[in-house]
């Protein structure tokens, strides 16, 4: 029965995954569809022109967690933006992720880097 479930999951999973571990600094490139609405001819009844644009939006930070297995696997990236911690959870096999680029290998002794949330002691 489990084998059958894998026949569903396998073809939907990402084939090439750049290896990365907890503690690595990564740059996740996300494909984002931007919908731009333009109004033309305001006199003669507004005709909307809707254009879709694909944009690539990077999210750079430290991987603090990898969780789950198979198609359900997710990872959490933490970055600090203007002094405020921002975390995003990504499904590893999500089609909106175009690339995961490892910038720096980390050297950590934990599986989950929750201690980063506590911040620097001043």
């Amino acid at each position: 029965m489990l084998d059958i479930r894998q026949t569903v999951e396998k073809p939907r999973m990402r084939e090439k995954i750049s290896e990365f571990r907890v503690g690595d600094t990564v740059k996740v490139s996300l494909k984002i569809k931007e919908i731009i609405k333009e109004e033309r001819n305001k006199k003669k009844g507004s005709k909307e022109k809707v254009t879709e644009k694909e944009k690539i939006y990077p999210f750079q930070g430290i991987v603090i967690k990898r969780k789950g297995g198979g198609i359900r696997e997710t990872f959490t990236v933490r970055k600090e933006s203007h002094g405020i911690g921002v975390e995003r959870i990504f499904p590893l096999h999500s089609p909106i992720i175009s690339e995961i680029h490892v910038l720096k290998k980390g050297n950590v002794k934990r599986a989950k880097l929750y201690y980063l949330r506590d911040g620097k002691k001043r």
């Binding site: 029965m1 059958i4 479930r5 569903v8």
Partner: peptide
């Protein structure tokens, strides 16, 4: 067989 998840195009 069991449950799992798939992704939509978006």
């Amino acid at each position: 067989v069991g449950m799992t998840q798939i992704f939509s195009e978006e």
